[in-house]
Amino acid sequence: MLKLKYLLLMLIPLCVLNPVLAQQVKVSASLERDSIWLGDQIRMILVAEYPEGVKLTFPEPKDSLGYGVEVLSRSARDSSRIGGGLIQMRQSYVITAFDSGPHPIKPFLFAGQANNRADTVRSNALSLFVKVPDVDLKKGFADIKKPYKAPVTFKEVAPWILGIILIASIVFLILYAINRRRKNIPLFTMPAKPKLPPHVVALSELDKLKEEQLWQQDKVKDYYTRLTDIIRTYLEERYEVPAMEQTTQEILSQFKGETTQIKGKLYSGLQKTLDIADLVKFAKSTPLPDENHFVMVHAYSLVEETKPETLETVKKQTLPNTETSVEKIISGPNEIEKQS
């Protein structure tokens, strides 16, 4: 009896204080719609509003809410301040039911605690009606319909497209590399420099050769080898004849006749130059200094007088005395500077 008295004395403050906490905390449960088709899905939302000092425990529904209502998924809890020192917390659930008819959903219990005081608050109860489509039995049974084909979206196809492009690129690169290797061409090449006109290259090479003074140092064979290479390269580039792969006689036969640009003195000079060069290169001949000088003069003349017409015209306008310019170029490097 004494124990019962103590118990009652302890419950009295709770009975007085609990309604106060319940008034401050508001909870509700709601459905998007009251009814659904059999197997359809619907969202159920639980909302609780409570003062900041209150520690509220949300209900944790299991997979089933009873009476055939199933929970398919649940969202994360979301809390926000709504003013007046209140916090709103909400959580949504996707539910469904596979039995027709009304399905009551019991109220949800929210446990609250503040200043060592505890209480539970109930939400409202819900009712979900599950509808079944009307079936006209008179029409007889229909075949089972095949699943609908959902349209393919870009998101689904994109990885495949990217994969195919990637594989195709790799295959292309491998084939490209093999092909380049077969042809003995490096895989990556720098863009080619713009090609200088053949006469510019030839004149520059002749200037270099003259400055090196090879025959004056008894390097006559090197001198003639370089000189004939310059002339042959020039002829090859200028007239598109394979002069580097041709013998002296073959080169000369290419330019034989009056119709070519190399005729008269130019032709005989070319013939003499190549003949002397052959003797030096292949027969250990040592030409006279005059001959060494002659072949250089002739090489300059050949290049100067067979330059493309357009450049020739420009040159004539700027340097009217072409013949003397060649002679002065030959006579020494100082003269070149004077001319320029």
Partner: peptide
């Protein structure tokens, strides 16, 4: 000729 030139090879 007492020496060989490329024409001879060809």
């Amino acid at each position: 000729r007492g020496y060989v030139i490329p024409e001879d090879i060809r």
